[in-house]
């Protein structure tokens, strides 16, 4: 197994996430795609640590911080989403046009 294998899987996962974030209509679908992108970045960090800097643990530590921020983001994002859903009664992003006036 070379580093290129892991980087290829991570970049494909990231691109699937980008595709989902660009095309999903449901806002929870967009959040799920963003989670996929976070995971692709974490795979990259772990792979770079394993193959290029096996003596340190900076890659795993940074990935842990990413996980923390992702967890906080999901919690706040879903709470905001519930609040928006209560006001607009829809979960589709093209209907979120309150700021249009």
């Amino acid at each position: 197994m070379t580093l290129a294998h892991y980087l290829t899987v991570a970049s494909l996962l990231f691109l699937i996430g980008v595709f989902g974030a660009l095309t999903r209509r449901n806002i929870i679908g967009i959040l799920m795609s963003i989670e996929l992108m976070f995971n692709a970045a974490n795979i990259n960090l772990a792979a770079f640590e394993r193959f290029l800097h096996p003596e340190g643990v900076a890659g795993a530590t940074l990935a842990l911080f990413i996980m923390t921020v992702a967890a906080a983001e999901v919690v706040v994002g879903l709470a905001l989403l519930l609040a928006i859903y209560r006001n607009t009664d829809t979960a589709y992003v093209e209907d979120y046009n309150l700021l249009k006036g």
Binding site: T2, A4, L7, S11, L15, F51
Partner: peptide
């Protein structure tokens, strides 16, 4: 973007775990 990303990944083709 996949063209660019896979090109970067190809640069590490020979990197084995030490």
């Amino acid at each position: 973007s996949s063209a660019g990303l896979l090109k970067i990944a190809r640069a590490y083709c020979g990197t084995l775990a030490p």
